[in-house]
Amino acid sequence: MTDHDHDHHDDHGSELSETQLRVRALETILTEKGYVDPAALDAIVETYETRIGPRNGAVVVAKAWTDPAFKQALLGDATKAVAALGHVSKVGDHLVAVENTPERHNMIVCTLCSCYPWEVLGLPPVWYKSAPYRSRAVKDPRGVLADFGVALPKETEVRVWDSTAETRFIVLPMRPAGTEGWSEERLADLVTRDSMIGTGLARKPGELAQ
C-alpha cells in the first residue's frame, strides 16, 4: 500500500516504480519461456476490471428478497442456486449464503489471507485484505462495524465467519423497510458490496439518490 501514490503515475509514462519494472521483467521471462500468453493476461485483467463485481451478488440478493423459493434454495445450496441463475460468472463449488435477521448479524473475514467470493463480489477491497480488518474482525466485530459507521442493537448476535478453507461466504442482508413492490432491479441498487460482506447494511430507499 505504501507505494500506491507512486504507482498512480505509472501509466502516464513517468518514472516506473521498482515493482512495476520487476513485474514487467517477470512477464517478459514467462512470455519468452512460453508459460504465459500476454493476450490471455490482458483478458483476465479486463474481466476483473469490467465484468466481475458486486453487482453480480446484488442481483442474487435482490432475487432472494422477492422470490421465497429462490431464497430457500440459496440458503440451502448457494452454489446450485446461483449457478441456476446463469447470468453471473461461473461459481465455484463451495459458495454458502448466510442470512441476516433481527436476531443475528453475519460478518465474513479471512484472517489468514484474503478468501472472498470473487464470482459474486469481484476482487476484495484493500481493507478486506488489510491487517486491521483481519486482526480485529474475529475479536471486536462491533468495533470494526463502528469503523464503517454501523451500530447494531446490543442484543443482536454477531456471527463472524472466518473463511479458513475453500468455502466462500456471502451475506444475505436484511431487506430495507419501505421497498414493498419494488422490482428486483431497483432492489439490487440497494445492495452494497459491504452489505454482502457484513460490514454494512443494505441502503434504505432514501439513501439511493446520494
Binding site: 485483467v45 477491497p125 486491521p132
Partner: peptide, 28 residues
C-alpha cells in the same frame, strides 16, 4: 493495527502491475 479504513470508489487495481501479477498467477 488500528482502524479499518475503507477507500471510497476503490478501483479493482491501484496500478497496472497489480493486474499483471494476478493474471500471471492465474495463468501459472
Amino acid at each position: 493495527f488500528g482502524k479499518v479504513e475503507a477507500e471510497p470508489n476503490e478501483p479493482p487495481f491501484h496500478a497496472s502491475w497489480e493486474g499483471r501479477v494476478l493474471a500471471m498467477v492465474r495463468a501459472m
